[in-house]
Design a protein around this nucleic acid. Structure first.
Length: 462
RNA sequence: GUGAUUGUAGCUCAGUCGGUUAGAGCGUCGGAUUGUGGUUCCGAAGGUCGCGGGUUCGAGCCCCGUCUUUCACCCCA
C-alpha cells in the first residue's frame, strides 16, 4: 500500500472550502450575467499549435503538454532523442492543457465567426493550468472567470469592465482594493519619447517593477536589455512622472498629456483613457477606486490598448484580477481586424484574500439548516413529511439515516454546525408536538408538526 | 528554469550527545449516560519517522540522491 498524494501545485477542495468557493463563483457569475455576457465552455486541452506562441517564450515553457496517445515513440529515431527536448516535444506531443481562457476564446470566435452575432460577449469560468513552481498565491491548477467582448472598438466595453470590477469586489465584500489602469499606447508613447520606439515591450517589463525594486535596479535592467545611455537619461527624467501614481486620475492624465505631447500614439492612449473614465462618470458611478499607473505593464504580450489590474490592499498577494484590450489575437488564427477586450478574475487568489482578511459572510459556509433526529422507526413516519415540507420551503434539511443513540445524532449536528434540530420520539409521535432545539442556545420548544416549518423559516431568516 | 526551505499518528508539534520498546495535545472511535449535544471522567485504535541508498556495533537524528511542502527570483491569476 502506498500513500496517495496530489500532484504538485494541485489541491482538493473540501465541503467547507467549496461552499466558500461557490460563493465567489456565484457572485462573479451574477455580475457577468447582469452585464449581458453569455456563458461558454471550451475543452481542457487544446492543440499545442493553438496555444504555442501566444504567451511568449516563458509561456510556452509553462504549458502542460500531453503525451500523444498510443505508441508515441513509434517513429522516433535515436537522432530525435539526441537533439534534446525542445525538438523532441512536437514529435511526441500535439496537445496541451489550456493556459488561460482568452486564447481558447479567440480560437472559438474564429471557428464560429459566421454563427456569432457581433459584438459577441461571453463569460467563461473554468480551470487553467500552468507548469509553474508553486508559491504563495500561485498554483498549477487554478480557476479563472473571464468576461470578454469581441467585435467592437468601443471604449464603452472598457468602461463596463471597470464597472463590473467594482460590482464584483463590492459584492464579495472586498472593500479595500485598487484598480490600476494603463494603456499600452501610453507605454509606446514613452518608448517613443525616450528614443526607443517599438521597444515598449522590454521597457514595460522593467518599469513594471519600479515600486518593487526601485529606480536604480530598473535602470540596470534596461541597460542589460540594450537600451542606450541617452534613452536611460530620458527615462530617468520620466521616473518623476512614474511616481505620480498616487495622484488622482485627472492630474495624472494632465501631466502625461504634457510629457507625451510629441508622441502621437501616446496622445491616443491618453485620449482612450479619458474617454473611458468619462463614460464611467456618465453611467453615474462615483467613488471609483481607480489609479492611473503609467508603469503598469502586465506580461501577456497580446495587449494593445487598455490594461487592467486589481490588487487587494492589506494582503501580500499578487493581482487578483487582470485584463486588457487585444487587437490582433484572432489574426493568429487567420481572422485579422477583430478587436477584443476582457477581464479575468482569479478565484483562488480572491479566496486567499478573503480567507486571510476574514471576509466570507457567515452564511457562505452554511450547510444543513435543520437536522431531523428520529428516535425509532415509527418516528420516521412523522419525520418524512416534515422533511419534505422543509425542503419545499427552501430549507436545507436532512434526517439522520440510522436509528442510534441521541447523543451520536446530536454530535453529528454539532460537527456539521447545524443550527436547528427537530427531535421526534414516541411522545412526539403520539401528541404531534415536535421538539425543536436551537443548538446554539440550547433552547427547546414543543411545536406542532403543521407549524414547525413556518417556525424554522422565520428562525433561519433572522 | 535558478536559489533556499520543509517532511515524525488524521491535525499541530516534542523527541537531549547517534543508544533499549518513538511521545504529547487536539481529533476519531468506544464507554460512564437505553429521550438530549457542547463540559468532565475512563478506555481504545492509530507510525515503513516522505522514499531509496550510505556511514556506524547501533540512525527519527549524520552523509548522498530523490520526491514533497513553503518561500524568493524569472514570470504570472
Amino acid at each position: 500500500m502506498q500513500k496517495p498524494t496530489l500532484p504538485k501545485g494541485t489541491r482538493d477542495f473540501g465541503p467547507e472550502q467549496m461552499r466558500k468557493r461557490l460563493f465567489i463563483f456565484d457572485t462573479i457569475r451574477q455580475t457577468f450575467q447582469r452585464f449581458a455576457f453569455q456563458p461558454l465552455e471550451t475543452p481542457s486541452m487544446e492543440n499545442l499549435s493553438t496555444l504555442m506562441g501566444k504567451y511568449g517564450d516563458e509561456g510556452d515553457q509553462l504549458l502542460f503538454k500531453i503525451l500523444n496517445s498510443g505508441d508515441f515513440a513509434a517513429n522516433l529515431t535515436e537522432l530525435d532523442v539526441a537533439q534534446g527536448s525542445k525538438k523532441l516535444t512536437p514529435k511526441i506531443s500535439e496537445k496541451g492543457l489550456r493556459y488561460d481562457l482568452t486564447v481558447p476564446f479567440a480560437r472559438y470566435v474564429v471557428m464560429n465567426r459566421n454563427a456569432l452575432t457581433m459584438p459577441f460577449k461571453r463569460y467563461q469560468m473554468q480551470p487553467v493550468w500552468r507548469a509553474d513552481r508553486p508559491q504563495k498565491g500561485r498554483y498549477r491548477e487554478f480557476y479563472q472567470c473571464d468576461a470578454d467582448v469581441v467585435g467592437t472598438d468601443s471604449l464603452l466595453c472598457e468602461a463596463e469592465i471597470i464597472l463590473m470590477i467594482h460590482e464584483v469586489f463590492q459584492n464579495l465584500g472586498i472593500q479595500d482594493f485598487t484598480l490600476k489602469i494603463n494603456n499600452r499606447k501610453i507605454l509606446a508613447g514613452i518608448a517613443e519619447m525616450i528614443g526607443a520606439p517599438g521597444q515598449e515591450g522590454p521597457l514595460s517589463v522593467a518599469i513594471d517593477k519600479l515600486d518593487k525594486i526601485g529606480k536604480e535596479k530598473v535602470l540596470d535592467e534596461l541597460r542589460e536589455r540594450g537600451f542606450s545611455e541617452a534613452s536611460l537619461v530620458s527615462i530617468d527624467e520620466l521616473l518623476a512622472l512614474f511616481s505620480l501614481q498616487k495622484l488622482d486620475p485627472d492630474n495624472v492624465l494632465t501631466i502625461l498629456e504634457d510629457k507625451l505631447r510629441k508622441s502621437e500614439i501616446g496622445q491616443l492612449g491618453i485620449g482612450e483613457l479619458k474617454e473611458t473614465l468619462e463614460l464611467v462618470q456618465q453611467y453615474g458611478f462615483e467613488n471609483a477606486r481607480i489609479d492611473i499607473d503609467p508603469t503598469l505593464a502586465r506580461g501577456l504580450s497580446y495587449y494593445t490598448g487598455a490594461i487592467f489590474e486589481v490588487k487587494a490592499n492589506g494582503v501580500q498577494i499578487g493581482s487578483v484580477s487582470g485584463g486588457g484590450r487585444y487587437d490582433n489575437l484572432t489574426s493568429a488564427f487567420g481572422m485579422p481586424g477583430l478587436s477584443g477586450v476582457g477581464i479575468s478574475f482569479g478565484v483562488d487568489r480572491i479566496y486567499d484574500v478573503m480567507d486571510e482578511l476574514n471576509l466570507f459572510p457567515p452564511n457562505a459556509g452554511q450547510g444543513t439548516q435543520v437536522l431531523i433526529v428520529p428516535f425509532d422507526a415509527e418516528a420516521r413516519t412523522v419525520a418524512l413529511p416534515v422533511l419534505r415540507q422543509l425542503r419545499t420551503a427552501d430549507i436545507t434539511a436532512e434526517m439522520y439515516p440510522d436509528i442510534t443513540k441521541v447523543k451520536k445524532m446530536l454530535d453529528y449536528a454539532n460537527a456539521k454546525q447545524v443550527p436547528f434540530v427537530i427531535l421526534i420520539g414516541s411522545e412526539e409521535v403520539q401528541t404531534g408536538e415536535l421538539s425543536v432545539k436551537n443548538m446554539l442556545t440550547g433552547e427547546q420548544h414543543k411545536i406542532s408538526a403543521d407549524k414547525v416549518v413556518a417556525f424554522i423559516v422565520s428562525a433561519c431568516k433572522a
